[in-house]
Amino acid sequence: MAAVRERLLAWLHPRPQARAWALLAPGTLWLLLFFLVPLIIMFVYSMMPRGIYGGVDPGFTLEHYRRFFDPLYLDILRRTFVWSIACTAICLVLGYPVAYAIARGGQWKNLLLFLVVLPFWTSFLVRTFAMIFLLRDSGLVNNWMLRLGVIEHSITLLYTPFAVMAGLVYGFLPFMILPIYASLEKLDLSLLEAAEVLGARPVERFRRVTLPLSMPGVVAGCLLVFIPALGSFLTADLLGGAKQMMIGNLVQNQFSAARNWPFGSAASFIVMALVLLAVMFYLRVKDRAPGEAPLR
């Protein structure tokens, strides 16, 4: 065994390309097997007639793609996009100051980071259930507001768009904070001093130096929130009830209760294509935005 290892290493040593492939191989194989193959299966399914007991029957049809363009489904699609964008925007507004504070947090930095990551110690499902206890008519939020006299009767929070948005923002906020923190943390402080000595007051300094230099973190954070938000179904399912369906709920529903695998597959592919377009558009706009125009 040791001899085989020796010979393998001796063979790899002068071949940097082979070494790169050897390092890539395990992960690549994993993704091929468990991501690409199912994706191909789904793509094929999305163009086959629906089987009576789930699955598919032999044949070819584009019926499922056509069906998706029903106003009912387009409405869900529109809502999903609006909510995901809103969720991303809220996470950005809430997350940026937090990331900034942590990056400047001095001795508290590690503790604060730990607190940001702490929710991941419990399952997202459990945490979303916990939000039900907070938001329901006799939940903590209503109780406190009643006791403080802010409201006279309980107000309905659960199963409203507000509840879904609160759940989405709560769930995805760390994914916004962490990349922004990472880019702010490595920001060279002498750049801020240079801006100051060149006459920039704090607001200008932020606008012209801190913000542009943290853009990579902002971009990464927005993608990390927007894409999973678009595909999420658990939050809308638990906190939104049946009225606040997102595209993820539709897909999940088609695969489970409705037993319409081909339609679920087609919906998935349409969403995937739209996400791809949205991300490409976003990266385009972002590349054009932060650089400042040359003089003259």
Partner: peptide
């Protein structure tokens, strides 16, 4: 500055 502290996202003239 010792490290020059040039703004890396801005051109020389900027």
């Amino acid at each position: 500055f010792q490290s020059y502290a040039l703004f890396p996202h801005l051109s020389v003239q900027r």
